[in-house]
Design a protein around this nucleic acid. Structure first.
Lengths: 168, 168
DNA sequence: AACTTGGGTATGAAAAATGGACTCAGGTGA
DNA sequence: TCACCTGAGTCCATTTTTCATACCCAAGTT
């Protein structure tokens, strides 16, 4: 997947044609969402982050859980470490030699809301029955995501959201 | 990416070894998050959803914006339509023949919180400067996502979230 | 009739994923 | 000591996707 570094001229030539605030071609390099997708937007990477969120740290455990080819897992793990989303944590079991596991960094843990939102969407809109994966607080309450306005008012899911391009 | 249909035996054999509530290998088919990732977790698909969220409806506009190969775009769009995330909306410009655009269904719009969360993560943790893509309410206030407990209390981002497997 | 345009297909080359074998280091048991 | 085991990878041949470019088609325009 080769993401283009810049938009074609469509934006400039069509800028005056934008009537509604919809139809907003923000150039990819100036879009935080596009950058996030470039960083973690691939199926195996997201599943690896799910494992990490569940506290699975070891190469072989991830390999067994996901059925991912070892070479792909190795490549994705090192990419996530290079990006600062995972870090290696050496550990040793009694009577075993030292090995490294992979755990989320602060930056990696900050992806929790996105993963929770995906989980909620899936439960609400995809077939497959209820999820056995629960994400909860230390005191056992389920965690959910909600859209809010910047002033803290929670939005119901019928509210209209519009995408606009900030003037450069 | 071939996601395994079921876990290896690790879960059953290791079930008693789970000490902390971390290390929770929920089988992939019983995990809503895994199902969401299988449905939309690939880079081009996420970028197409971003276009749709921005109100871009036409094949050629998406092609120009993303630089995606036409064949890949055609394949992804038809998959999204088959999954009920996008729907074709025929339109005709004056003096032009009828064509179809692609717009989000209700199910597709329900992905907004996940995409907003990704955008926020990117702005907070990836380099690249501020995003020009703004998501806001009709009255112009920025929209954000927040983690909450089920009882409505907003969690700050230092709160500990634990993943647990519901008993089957 | 010839030309244009949006919205796709077809095709061959290039890149990535897959699955299985192989490696390597350190610990264990005989 | 030496053969063997294990976790954590690397290597490689085969298959599958992507990529880029060219081509196609239907309706409207000149």
């Amino acid at each position: 997947m080769k993401i283009k570094l810049c938009y074609a001229d469509r934006m400039t030539e069509s800028a005056s044609k934008i009537v509604s605030s919809h139809q907003v071609p923000v150039p990819l390099p100036e879009c935080a969402l596009a950058r996030a997708i470039r960083a973690i937007g691939d199926g195996w990477t997201l599943l690896i982050l799910r494992e990490a969120l569940c506290g699975v740290e070891r190469f072989d455990a991830m390999h067994d859980d996901l059925g991912i080819p070892r070479s792909v897992l190795a490549e994705r793990l090192s990419k996530l470490v290079a990006e600062g989303i995972l870090e290696q944590r050496p550990y040793r079991e009694p009577g075993r030699r030292q090995r490294n596991g992979y755990v989320l960094t602060e930056k990696g843990r900050a992806l929790t809301p996105a993963l929770v939102a995906l989980r909620e969407w899936s439960e609400a809109h995809l077939p497959g029955g209820p999820s056995r994966l629960r994400l909860q607080t230390a005191d056992g309450q389920e965690v959910v995501t909600r859209l809010m306005r910047a002033d803290g008012v929670v939005l119901d899911n019928s509210s209209e959201i519009v995408a606009v391009a900030k003037p450069e």
